[in-house]
């Protein structure tokens, strides 16, 4: 083989490898995206069931309920138009508290109940997750159904 030919083979090999990697990457990406929905979208049935999604909003004051001594906790997340109840089992993050913006990752069990496998509260109390902030900024009448 001429050096030119060898180099060509090398380049072709690398291109093949890279395209293969890209293929894998895009497939993995499609399977592992999780979409964000606000409580209004959940209430209107826009959020899919049986798929990992994220739901976020403010934790409603006075909604955190827990059987004494149990790890099981339930709380409401609201965008001030609609509310979703989140059920979670485990240790909540330090900055989780009522009136705070949070994002929960998990699956919808019914139209009103979201079973979370992870709850995220951001670490700076001035900081609001952008998704939550934007969904709170939507005008009150938009998409609201009585």
């Amino acid at each position: 083989m001429t050096p030119r030919r060898k180099r060509l083979m090398l380049v072709v090999g690398i291109l093949l490898g890279v395209s293969l990697a890209t293929l894998f990457a895009t497939r993995a990406l499609r399977e592992n995206l999780s979409y964000f929905y606000d409580p209004t979208q959940v209430a209107q049935g826009e959020a899919p069931r049986g798929r990992s999604i994220r739901v976020g909003g403010m934790v409603t004051k006075g909604s955190v309920k827990r059987e004494s001594g149990s790890l099981e906790v339930k709380f409401d997340v609201t965008d001030f138009r609609h509310t979703v109840t989140v059920s979670y089992r485990g240790v909540l993050p330090d900055l989780f508290r009522e009136g705070q913006g949070i994002i929960a990752h998990g699956q919808l069990a019914s139209d009103r109940v979201f079973v979370a496998d992870e709850v995220l509260a951001k670490h700076d109390e001035k900081y609001m997750p952008p998704e939550v902030k934007q969904s709170l900024k939507k005008p009150m009448n938009e998409g609201a159904t009585p």
Binding site: L20, A21, F24, A25, T26, A28, L29, E31, N32, L33, S34, Y35, F36, S52, R54, H105, E131
Partner: peptide
């Protein structure tokens, strides 16, 4: 790809997504 994807999807109003560790754990190993 995983880092910028959510920003692009958001910029083109294709939904708010997040790319979680499962994606990287698979795609990065390849």
């Amino acid at each position: 790809l995983g880092t910028l994807m959510p920003m692009f999807m958001d910029a083109f109003s294709l939904g708010k997504i997040s790319v979680g560790p499962p994606f990287y754990n698979v795609a990065f190993l390849v």
